[in-house]
Design a binder for these strands. Structure first.
Lengths: 190, 190
DNA sequence: TCCTGCTATGCAACTCGTTGCATAGCAAGC
DNA sequence: GCTTGCTATGCAACGAGTTGCATAGCAGGA
């Protein structure tokens, strides 16, 4: 299980409330890890009980108060120990691949529409990633010269993870093109 | 949920027992969908109750008897209806990406070993996929001329899914090289 | 004979993740 | 004053997935 560790990383990058974490999981962190707010609240409570994080009540004006979480020493130690642990290369779950093989036993017309829809979704996500990259990592003069600081490391690591997302989307778009070409090849002949 | 649908597809391609399905989920189907034998047995039982599949007791010599499942009309209809339903593009879960961003707050040496281990695992899987492709889809004279049959469609769809796996592994290897280069760039300077 | 190992099926307990719902403060517009 | 919408937190129930364990037939080797 890594949700708690994803939360620790996110809180180390910047403390925040459960709500804010949920927003982050819709964007940057969510590019490679999803979680709903229910899950986050539940896990945060457990982490608080375990002493991994500490809470601070933050009154706000114009909106409801929030609880701001930050990482405690125990949490940092837990993250550190998890980082040492080897993990298994992820197991994949591709509904779409199941559908593609299933299309051999059904009318492929619906599948073609579905694949085109997915390709568009991946195009959109790619555009979104590229925009984020231009915004956050192509800033002028940022990483030119000077000594490397811990903040540089944080940025560089965030960037390489984003590049992974970009590579993934590009690969998917190419493959979905391949799928469509394959479907077109034998589709009309039936 | 798609496990039951993955099972339906697999049983349509070839009827088999729960045990055999579990083996298949370790190979071909398992390239894009994982399941343990517990899960498979449980779901098979439910599918039998729902009339999606039918069982046939098959006595065997030299080994325990087995129950061979095959798809019933209701199951085929259920699969067909699921194939019509649009699904959401998958949500990703990459432990490794969490670790990479977490490495900003810890010693990156362990991460480097981890990334190298994963790269090797992806290399192995790629070699395995390529061997499977050569064995199953590069057979001489198979797909040269003649009219397209439903069996051709089945094969072509299996092949395009495998090509997806190959593209995925190649992308991952390239990205992990990028990660290692990035770690090397700022790692020594600390 | 006993142990190991493979085929084959299954139960029970647990954790993880999703879905639906509920509450509440406050702002903006009709 | 009412509705809509965003921030913010949470409960309860369910379904999916994992882990540990148990059973049983049979083969082969020490």
């Amino acid at each position: 299980m890594a949700l708690e560790h994803a939360i620790l990383v996110s809180l180390l990058e910047k403390p925040g409330s459960g709500y804010e974490l949920a927003r982050r999981f819709e964007r940057s962190i969510g590019y490679f890890w999803t979680a709903t707010h229910q899950q986050i609240y539940r896990v945060l409570k457990r982490m608080e009980n375990d002493g991994w994080v500490v809470v601070r009540d933050v009154p706000q004006q114009g909106r409801p108060d929030k609880k701001e979480y930050s990482v405690a020493d125990l949490g940092r130690a837990a993250l550190s120990s998890w980082l040492q642990d080897p993990i298994e290369p992820e197991s994949v779950r591709h509904d779409l691949a199941v559908k593609i093989r299933g299309a051999a036993f059904d009318d492929p017309a619906a599948l073609i529409r579905e694949v085109e829809r997915h390709r568009q979704a991946h195009r959109d996500r790619l555009a979104h990633y590229l925009a984020g990259e231009a915004r956050d990592f192509m800033a002028p003069g940022a990483d030119t010269a000077g000594p490397k600081t811990p903040l540089d490391a944080e940025r560089e690591l965030q960037h390489v993870v984003l590049r992974g997302g970009i590579a993934y989307e590009r690969m998917m778009i190419g493959w979905l093109d391949d799928v469509l070409a394959t479907l077109a090849r034998f589709g009309p002949g039936r």
